[in-house]
């Protein structure tokens, strides 16, 4: 399986008046063809910045790629000019956002917005583009697509707007689709519809997807592989089964335990992670999670742990995985 996207040791910073914010601090991951990679993390962990950097959507300055490389279908994104990016966006990679209302142009009919994207990248007459737009709206299961294409975004409901966004993102059949919190603004029943739609789109077109979310339930539903981000770094990455059933990093473990499920006993207290994520103006010297970690050792506060391979591409960044770490203590958690 060839990789659609390869991100190597990516560092992104923002220069602000208060100082430099290290939003992304050495992120390495790859996405295979037709694969769904979920990036999970809390707000401010750098997951959205990572995604925006792949599309070069964050304004530079203040944003700055300090280090690292992004390889998208053989194209070097870091070095690409804005002009080259315009060709890459939409054709190779496209994005759907959290809030579909602010991402659609309120003064243009939805069909028109779709044809605009199509004619930008594909050689088609206006008539053909229009037909293609209706076909796309049908693909995302909008009822009466031909009629709906002639309507404005405000006449759509939240779920339909997100469908229109997906149609637009898929209009040029990109190799990679980045979905940044696609269902966060939606209700559960609509969220289920959109997730089903994304699974269908992936099956029909074979697009690789990067799913950015904080909802582990959504991840379990869609993702093949998962990367857990915290304070600008990937703490753990592996297949969905690795992450959900064999989590190695204390942060992942705590995150999974802190969620009540339908089966959680009500008399049981929820596991909570004390404290708050670190300040990225001045990232801690050692492990980022050390101050909130139950297993914190002296070493953790002083030195950043390297990434350990637990087996089969399952990697985690924790000192407790060091080969010399006593095994019996590992069992004891």
């Amino acid at each position: 399986m060839a990789d659609v996207l390869k991100v190597e040791n990516l560092h992104v910073s923002f220069d602000t008046y208060a100082g430099e914010v290290h939003a992304v601090r050495g992120v390495t991951f790859h996405v295979g063809e037709g694969e769904v990679l979920a990036i999970v993390g809390e707000s401010g962990c750098g997951k959205s910045v990572t995604a925006q950097t792949i599309m070069k959507l964050n304004p530079m300055p203040p944003a700055r790629i300090k280090e690292g490389s992004i390889d998208l279908c053989g194209k070097d994104i870091v070095a690409a000019s804005e002009k080259e990016m315009q060709d890459i966006r939409g054709r190779l990679v496209s994005m759907i956002f959290q809030d579909p209302m602010t991402c659609l142009n309120p003064t243009m009919k939805v069909g028109k917005q779709l044809t605009e994207a199509i004619s930008q990248h594909r050689k088609m007459t206006r008539e053909e583009a229009k037909k293609e737009a209706v076909r796309l709206l049908e693909m995302v299961q909008i009822p009466n697509a031909a009629e709906r294409a002639e309507m404005y975004p405000h006449e759509y409901s939240g779920g339909m707007r997100q469908r229109a966004m997906i149609a637009m993102a898929m209009s040029c059949e990109p190799k990679l689709l980045i979905a940044d919190e696609p269902t966060t603004a939606l209700d559960v029943t609509i969220q289920a519809q959109i997730m089903q739609l994304m699974a269908k789109v992936r099956k029909e077109t074979g697009t690789a997807i990067i799913l950015i979310t904080h909802d582990l339930g959504v991840v379990a539903n869609l993702a093949d592989r998962v990367a857990v981000m915290y304070a600008g770094k990937i703490m753990e990455t592996g297949t969905a089964e690795d992450i959900f059933y064999r989590p190695q990093h204390p942060y992942t473990q705590a995150l999974l335990k802190s969620l009540p499920t339908v089966d959680t006993d009500r008399s049981e207290k929820l596991v909570s992670i004390a404290g708050t994520p670190p300040d990225l103006f001045a990232p801690p010297k050692g492990c980022e999670f050390a101050s909130r970690c139950d297993h914190c050792m002296k070493l953790c506060k002083q030195h950043v742990p390297p990434t350990y391979d637990v087996g089969g591409g399952h990697m985690a960044r924790c000192w407790r995985l060091h080969p010399d770490f006593p095994k019996d203590q590992k069992e004891g958690n």
Partner: peptide, 21 residues
């Protein structure tokens, strides 16, 4: 329609997605 943070159970879940808005 509540997603369960568990891939196996999520896969077993019957698709009873509610249509419409």
């Amino acid at each position: 329609s509540v997603p369960i943070p568990d891939p196996d159970r999520e896969a077993q879940k019957k698709a009873t997605v509610l249509g419409g808005d």
